[in-house]
Computed example of a mutant assay.
Amino acid sequence: MATDSGLRIYRDATAIITGGASGIGRALAEELAARGGEVVLADLQLELAEEAAAAVRSAGGRATAARLDVTDHEEFARLVRETVTRTGRLDFLFNNAGISHGMGAGARHYRIEDWRRVLDVNLGGTVNGVQAAYNLMIDQGFGHIVNTASMAGLVPSPGTTSYVTTKHAVVGLSHNLRAEAAQLGVRVSVLCPGVVRTPFIEGGRYGRRVDGVTSEVTREMWEQRKPIPPEEFARKALDEVARNKGVIVVPGFWKLFWWLFRLAPEFSLRLGTKNFRDLGGGAAAGHEAARTGPETSPREP
């Protein structure tokens, strides 16, 4: 299906997906390809991205892999230019790459470099994607930028302060850009997943955790929140993207927490305080012992 503007949904569309090697990014790529689109899986982990692209091709889809550091604007802009030169268009950009730091540990255990890394990837990477693709989409007369935030961009999530900071910023960026872009023929949406079963919920390869907050602790924390398979998330999210929804919350029951925070913010904050206290409040963790997370792939919950 194509819109009046020329945007293809999704047959014969071209889409770039950052963080496309695994988790939500890979699931989005597989679902887009199954719906007839051509996907570029962009990721720091080129070998893993190539494996994912090969799997898409084996299933009958069209996919290529590209190495991308989303914190490098020139590299991002080059990938967009090369994609458009090769395919003649860019229908979708999924700004999906992201990392976390010290899940469950609390802000008192951060180092300044931890803040900078999360800001550079989660917010800076999204800004770089917008900067690389937005004007091009305006010039071609169509396009859809889809930014991955999180429920942590809509409600408080104590124990994930740096992550929450970036995801609130991504939501705000998406709201504002959507308002500006509508009159220019470009769509903007923001994905706000609940909890999705990906390597990210244990830190991811490029995330960081601290001693006392092990992968087992974080896994248990997220399991209590009923994670869904990334394939289910991708199917439901792409249906909403096709409808040009501005804020996309999947699974739908997470909207209750968003509505509760909007209606009763003080009550929601008290709940957040209790949850953080029940988790241990990061009391066992020490920032001096911060270490690189497990050798798994970085992706968004």
Score class of each variant (00 low, 15 high):
Val186Ile: 13
Met103Arg: 00
Ile112Tyr: 07
Asn122Asp: 15
Gly104Trp: 04
Ile99Cys: 02
Leu7Glu: 08
Arg35Asn: 13
Tyr134Ile: 13
Trp258Thr: 14
Thr14Lys: 11
Met137Gly: 03
Gly159Asn: 05
Ser22Pro: 02
Leu44Glu: 02
Arg235Val: 14
Thr18Tyr: 08
Gly141Trp: 12
Val170His: 09
Val186Asp: 06
His144Phe: 09
Val196Thr: 11
Lys274Asn: 10
Leu46Asn: 01
Arg209His: 10
Arg235Lys: 14
Asn147Trp: 06
Arg26Cys: 03
Glu288Asn: 08
Ala149Asp: 07
Arg208Glu: 12
Ile145Asn: 03
Gln140Val: 03
Leu46Glu: 12
Gly153Gln: 11
Pro301Val: 14
Ala52Cys: 07
Arg116Phe: 02
Ala2Ile: 12
Lys245Thr: 15
Thr18Ala: 10
Val56Ser: 00
Ile145Gln: 02
Ala149Pro: 05
Gly124Cys: 12
Gly252Lys: 11
Ala49Arg: 04
Ser174Pro: 05
Asn135Arg: 14
Arg219Leu: 14
Glu74Tyr: 01
Arg225Trp: 14
Thr165Gly: 12
Leu256Pro: 00
Arg117Asn: 13
Gly104Gln: 06
Gly159Leu: 12
Leu260Asn: 04
Ser58Thr: 15
Ala242Tyr: 08
Arg178Gly: 11
Asp43Gly: 04
Glu220Ile: 04
Arg205Ala: 14
Thr273Gly: 13
Ala181Cys: 05
Gly37Ser: 14
Phe76Thr: 15
Tyr10Met: 12
Thr64Phe: 00
Asn122Cys: 07
Ser189Glu: 10
His73Asp: 03
Pro229His: 13
Ile138Leu: 06
Ile228Asp: 07
Gly194Cys: 12
His101Trp: 11
Gly60Asn: 12
Met1Trp: 02
Ala234Glu: 04
Val195Cys: 03
Arg26Val: 10
Gly141Thr: 03
Ala242Pro: 06
Leu136Pro: 00
Ser174Gln: 11
Leu119Ile: 15
Ala42Arg: 00
Ile201Cys: 01
Trp115Glu: 04
Ala33Arg: 11
Glu113Trp: 05
Arg277Cys: 00
Val155Cys: 04
Tyr110Ser: 08
Gly293Thr: 06
Ala182Gly: 06
Tyr110Ile: 01
